[in-house]
Design a protein around this nucleic acid. Sequence first.
DNA 1: AGGAGTTTGTGAACGCGGGAACAAAATGGA
DNA 2: TCCATTTTGTTCCCGCGTTCACAAACTCCT
Lengths: 230, 230
Amino acid sequence: MTTRSSTDAARVIPEATVARLPVYLRALTALADSGIRTCSSEDLATAAGVNSAKLRKDLSYLGSYGTRGVGYDVDYLRYQIAREIGVTQDWPVVIVGIGNLGHALANYSGFRSRGFRVVALLDADPGIVGQTVAGVVVRPFDDLEEIVREHDVAIGVIATPAVAAQDVADRMVAIGITSILNFAPAVVAVPEGVDVRKVDLSIELQILAYHEQRKANGADAAPATDGGAA
Amino acid sequence: MTTRSSTDAARVIPEATVARLPVYLRALTALADSGIRTCSSEDLATAAGVNSAKLRKDLSYLGSYGTRGVGYDVDYLRYQIAREIGVTQDWPVVIVGIGNLGHALANYSGFRSRGFRVVALLDADPGIVGQTVAGVVVRPFDDLEEIVREHDVAIGVIATPAVAAQDVADRMVAIGITSILNFAPAVVAVPEGVDVRKVDLSIELQILAYHEQRKANGADAAPATDGGAA
DNA sequence: AGGAGTTTGTGAACGCGGGAACAAAATGGA
DNA sequence: TCCATTTTGTTCCCGCGTTCACAAACTCCT
């Protein structure tokens, strides 16, 4: 129905679908590494831990990249999803706050292999600035603007203590960063047009604790889990 | 309508609400630390970064803990939410996989301060076993069962490489762990009754990248026949 | 005491996402 | 060529979650 050329970026993809595309991408990479060239929606859905109908609907938002009666070409679909997400190119990223978590993030190889390149590590603590982490020298937080301009950075990662998070976010936004991944246990407010995603380690544990408590409390039934695999 | 006593655990709280309760808890703690004794739903909603109507509806699933015309008693509400989530007691947790991320998790003070106690660090690598991390000696993965029985552990954290994740999960489930927090970039399948939550660092970045790409691609411009080639 | 002003708790409308079921399209065999 | 088989792409329906809007309940001032 909709005329969609291969460079048509005007289609609207539901948020829920966008959040699953990286999972499909990972599953496809795993399949490709196993030497599998073609797969059905059922196969891929199993590998990704979702329902096959949901998978097909998700993929249909991207276009018709499968062949009825046959399935999907693993490499082709992988490329199409990568292109849609935008990870065929490398995204430069800065990490602010080189504590325990920042350390781990700087060393995380999954970033580079999935389309991201850490161009700088920043910290406000003079005791940390100058240290070498993951082969990179930690620079003072005030260098943020220079680094962002030099590498045209659009994505920033906050791994500072909670109290510093809002300040860092404000500074990032002022300099032109438009996407923030926040690991600090704090709500950061940003103006319209800036995306923030948050990852809170203890919140995830608390959610598990809630369900765990209910299991223990006898209760009536199993608390429907989110992605419980079959 | 529903008769709800303070110890009634049969009420069903929507998943979306459960996921926000820890955020409210954090916001309340922040308010309490600022010396604020009472707050309105508007205040708390702002602090938590949500809509006040949503906040009130969420809290209404727990009971009527506010006072009309006045607001909420910060400490009282905080206790009620903590009790509902189940973090008035301490939950013992084991962390498997003491690489970069496991290291950071072991050192993360937010766990202990929010109701969780890391009772053991485990790794399958003999080169890591025996090291002291966060004041705890890393033990061999095979000690899992002994530790889980000794401390009555219900929650396990997986911070291993992707290939090991499913094995570790299977082992955890076999031993009786019923809640898993998975940091490995892999889908883990578990039987019914076991809860799994996953945190994938690069997936979060990929979601940001998708939106970033769309911002760059001519944004919301009217979808002319030709995809904006600007 | 009574009314004005606040703020909570909730009923109802609405929109999004999930899942089943089916039509459309491709392959392969007779 | 034509039919059976397979698997995708899509439509329809349902349930959950979000939001609006308002009645109920409490305080404070006169």
